[in-house]
């Protein structure tokens, strides 16, 4: 390898509850090659410079959704962001915005997990089927309806991007709405009426002000902003049609 070793300054937001009263920035000089991701930069720091640095990661290929962090203030998957794009100025890495910090780049994600559970992110059959009746069939067109929304990897970048979630974390938020929508429009699902309660609630879909940054930062090309907007109309229909449809509009 003829390439001369390059060094990039990486500024990392540290928070070690046993010694820091508030988060502080610490700069590391990291040697890197052009194929190194920001995550690999952090791994270099942990392996060779400071073993106490904490961050979440797993797959290194943008499928697990663990390594979301703020890179120069933009919610990013660190495995999908490359050091070469920040050379020679350097970059600043911080914990995902809008979430409490547990330690260094590790955030407390309890709120997200609770919301995820609350929307019942699984298919609730319209009526139970016995094994002998076979599988639930679906046409390619029916599958296409929700496919985009099913790409969500729960990385929470859209929550770090959402100014409304930042102002009021009770807001159900973009990613959860995308997942909720994914199940509601699945032809095999019959749980829409139950999930609409979350959409219609005061902390539901109407806290969104259609900023759209959620959809921009999504690393999996999901369009959570669209899911939120579609559900505003669904919720408005539900609001008025409940008077004429005694059982609610959920199928």
């Amino acid at each position: 390898m003829s390439e001369i070793e390059k060094i990039i300054p990486i500024e990392v937001l540290r928070y070690r509850p046993e010694q820091d009263t508030e988060p502080v920035l610490q700069t590391f000089q990291v040697p890197f090659t052009d194929d190194m991701s920001v995550l690999q930069g952090l791994q270099y720091i942990k392996d060779y410079l400071d073993g106490s640095l904490s961050f979440r990661w797993s797959c290194r290929m943008a499928i697990c959704g663990s390594c979301g962090m703020m890179v120069n203030g933009i919610p990013s998957l660190s495995c999908k962001t490359f050091l070469r794009d920040y050379y020679p100025v350097g970059l600043r890495i911080e914990a995902l915005a809008h979430f409490p910090i547990e330690r260094d780049l590790v955030i407390v994600m309890d709120d997200f997990i609770e919301k995820l559970e609350s929307i019942k992110p699984y298919i609730i059959p319209k009526k139970p089927r016995t094994l002998i009746e076979g599988e639930y069939l679906q046409t390619p067109t029916e599958r296409d309806a929700y496919e985009q929304f099913s790409s969500c990897i729960n990385c929470m970048l859209c929550y770090a991007a959402c100014p409304q979630y930042g102002l009021n974390s009770k807001f159900i938020g973009p990613g959860i709405m995308a997942l909720l929508h994914r199940y509601n429009i699945d032809s095999r699902d019959g749980g829409k009426a139950q999930r609409m309660e979350m959409v219609n609630a005061e902390d539901g879909v109407f806290d969104c002000t259609a900023v759209g940054y959620c959809s921009k930062v999504c690393p999996k090309h999901v369009d959570p902003g669209n899911a939120v907007n579609l559900n505003k109309m669904e919720s408005a229909k539900d609001y008025f049609l409940r008077f004429v449809m005694p059982k609610g509009t959920g199928k």
Partner: peptide, 16 residues
Amino acid sequence: MSANLKRSNQPIFWLL
């Protein structure tokens, strides 16, 4: 997240 499931009145204003 507190489970506040009170129905929002925003649909009226949102439609207008």
